[in-house]
């Protein structure tokens, strides 16, 4: 019965949120930096999806006799690396890898963080325990946490994803918990509770939607951090396994060739910078557009 009584309320919500969506989009599109970021992200997505059609070599095809060709060489407009692999092809396939790593680790991290945050925020009894665990994770510098996890699981891209996901959990949990705490006290939630709506229903239908804004901003910014962290792990030799065209691994490998073939490190370096920058400005723009007073750091 209680749920029927709530129908009108629920029915109203999407409409309200749609207009908010429009409003946010309009604000976002006014922000030149954010638009630039969106374009970069879009380009990366296009590269990732169309990879096989826009390159003429596979990213792992070696040709030792054509090693270290510079930018603008015939057949390899971005040159080749020390194994004669086409840099353009590696760059394009690398876009795929970095999106894949970013998205999966953020999604897993969010799943964990949201669950913990919701539980901690909604159930006072669980709050203490969960937040202590979150504090525990928080007290490790992220890169150290990732190193320990990789030491335990072994070096592979999947384990990097797991490590970075776990690293995202505490930040996300804190943000979600904070939003839950503020939403929980609002009258309509209190009303629903008194009407006997189930906890799960309240959490999923009413509390979670109200946390979406900070979560979206967090996720966008987190994409940037994930891509950077993957590259840092690759620099320490703990990232993707060769010959995977991962940008961070490409930079790390290219640093040894800084003098003979600077393009090997500059090309992927610029790619990472652009993409991370793009996610950061879009996140920043989203925050301004959604709620300028949103206050958090991950």
């Amino acid at each position: 019965m209680a749920s029927e009584a709530l129908q009108p309320n629920v029915g109203k919500k999407p409409k309200k949120r749609e207009s908010q969506l429009l409003q946010t989009t309009r604000k976002l599109l006014k922000n030149k930096l954010a638009v630039f970021g969106l374009i970069v992200i879009l380009l990366q997505m296009i590269m990732a999806v169309t990879a096989p059609w826009i390159v003429s070599y596979t990213p792992i095809e070696q040709s030792l006799s054509d090693a270290e060709l510079g930018i603008g060489s015939e057949g390899h407009w971005l040159g080749t690396d020390n194994y004669g692999r086409d840099m353009w092809s590696r760059l394009v396939y690398g876009a795929r890898v970095s999106l894949l790593v970013g998205v999966t680790s953020v999604v897993i991290g969010l799943a964990g963080g949201i669950t913990l945050g919701l539980l901690a925020g909604y159930y006072k009894k669980l709050d203490g325990l969960i937040m202590r665990i979150v504090d525990l994770l928080f007290a490790f510098p992220g890169i150290l946490l990732a190193m320990l996890i990789i030491a335990m699981l072994g070096t592979s891209l999947i384990n990097v994803v797991i490590a970075i996901s776990i690293w995202s959990i505490p930040g996300c949990a804190r943000i979600v918990r904070g939003s839950v705490l503020s939403v929980k006290k609002q009258e309509y939630v209190l009303a629903m509770r008194s009407m006997g709506a189930s906890d799960i229903r309240i959490i999923l239908k009413h509390i979670l939607p109200n946390c979406t804004a900070p979560i979206i901003v967090f996720a966008t910014m987190r994409m940037a951090t994930s891509i950077l962290s993957t590259s840092a792990l690759s620099f320490l030799g703990l990232g993707a396994q060769p010959p995977t065209p991962e940008w961070g691994a490409m930079i790390a490998a290219g640093q040894d060739f800084m003098w003979s073939s600077p393009h090997m490190t500059i090309v992927p370096g610029i790619a990472i910078m652009l993409v991370v920058f793009a996610f950061n400005v879009v996140g920043d723009g989203l925050r301004d557009a959604l709620d300028p007073n949103m206050d958090f750091n991950n």
């Binding site: 792992i60 194994y83 072994g154 030799g237 396994q241 060769p242 010959p243």
Partner: peptide
């Protein structure tokens, strides 16, 4: 990296695991 690529050429499906 070099051996992996050369083995692929002759039809052996090689993967690298680093430690």
């Amino acid at each position: 990296e070099i051996v992996q690529s050369q083995l692929t050429e002759v039809g052996i499906d090689a993967e690298i695991e680093s430690m």
